[in-house]
């Protein structure tokens, strides 16, 4: 009889057995990700915390501890308070617009029509196009002289050349512009989230609601939306976190202007800390994102758990 155990008993392959242990192998597999986060997120974050309580500028590189001085300076600055408010308007404005566009886009894309697959692919473009390119295109559309939007409105006879809006020159319109561009970037993602959610609702439930007398709106807002809420909330958390910390669209489209009307936290932190060289105050400004985001995420995760079905 052949002894099958022969092979396993071979000495000298200790390494093989060490790798058999989930504790060892698991640690090896997960370490690149942990290292990545520690080196590229953890270390800069700790550094930022330290800078924010020091008097460090690129002109006088002093690590002198100044306590909460920088934070107090920042909060007392009206520009900062304007920036904080802008950040909230920018974030929630673009999320709301993006969600509404996403919901209706998803409902439209659920219906069968010729060329649906092509449209589904094309609608992903705003999400896929590099933000710098897309924003430059938008910048031309909002340009004070060459705006294609104004040209269209004039051609349609809705406005006259003399009262054509200066999109990026008027503080309110400039905010509207950055919101619209960000919503435009976000809505394909919202469509994907809504499509995934709506297709996961069992047809029987929707049919039951129809027979039970629910029309389009009731079916949507009393049955489908509550059922897909957990998925949508996760998408929304991503959207809020990315928008709240984003500076690219503001930087490229308005450069924070006019007169700080579209300046957001990320942009302000970059301006103060890197462009002006006041690293300590820049770090303090940036750290204001932390508690806000922390609370937001906590509230949302809690609301999901309560609704869990």
């Amino acid at each position: 009889m052949v002894a099958i155990a022969d092979k396993a008993a071979k000495p000298g392959s200790r390494l093989q057995f060490i790798l058999d242990s989930p504790a060892v192998l698991g640690t090896i597999f997960v370490s690149p990700a942990v290292l990545y986060v520690l080196v590229l997120v953890g270390a800069p974050f700790l550094l930022a915390m330290y800078y924010s309580v020091s008097a460090y500028t690129i002109y006088s590189q002093s690590y002198r501890f100044v306590g909460l001085r920088n934070f107090i300076d920042v909060v007392q600055d009206p520009v900062f308070r304007q920036t904080l408010l802008n950040t909230f308007i920018f974030t929630f404005g673009s999320q709301i617009v993006g969600l509404i566009l996403g919901k209706f886009g998803a409902l439209l894309l659920l219906r069968p029509f010729p060329g649906r697959k092509v449209v589904r692919a094309l609608i992903m473009l705003p999400w896929a196009v590099p933000v710098a390119l897309a924003t430059v295109a938008w910048e031309w559309m909002f340009d004070s002289l060459y705006s294609v939007i104004n040209w269209t409105l004039i051609a349609l006879g809705i406005i006259t050349r003399s009262d054509a809006p200066n999109w990026l020159g008027n503080p309110h319109l400039a905010m509207l512009c950055v919101i619209m561009v960000n919503a435009w970037r976000f809505f394909p993602f919202a469509i994907v989230i809504f499509l995934a959610g709506i297709t996961s609702v069992p047809q029987d439930v929707i049919d039951a609601a129809t027979v039970d007398g629910a029309g389009f709106w009731r079916r949507n807002y009393q049955i489908i939306v509550p059922m897909i809420a957990p998925i949508v909330v996760v998408g929304l958390i991503f959207g809020i976190v990315f928008t709240f910390t984003d500076l690219s669209i503001v930087y490229l489209l308005t450069n924070g202007g006019p007169v700080g009307a579209t300046s957001v936290l990320g942009f302000e932190g970059f301006q103060v800390g890197i462009v002006s060289g006041d690293v300590a105050h820049g770090a303090a400004i940036s750290l204001f994102m932390l508690p806000v985001l922390f609370v937001l995420v906590l509230v949302m995760l809690r609301s999901i758990r309560r609704q869990e079905i």
Binding site: D207, V211, A229
Partner: peptide, 17 residues
């Protein structure tokens, strides 16, 4: 909804939320 019929589905179609 206006036909006065009620239907019970194979997987019941209860509203989970």
């Amino acid at each position: 909804r206006a036909r006065g019929v009620a239907m019970m589905f194979q997987s019941y179609g209860l509203y989970p939320h």
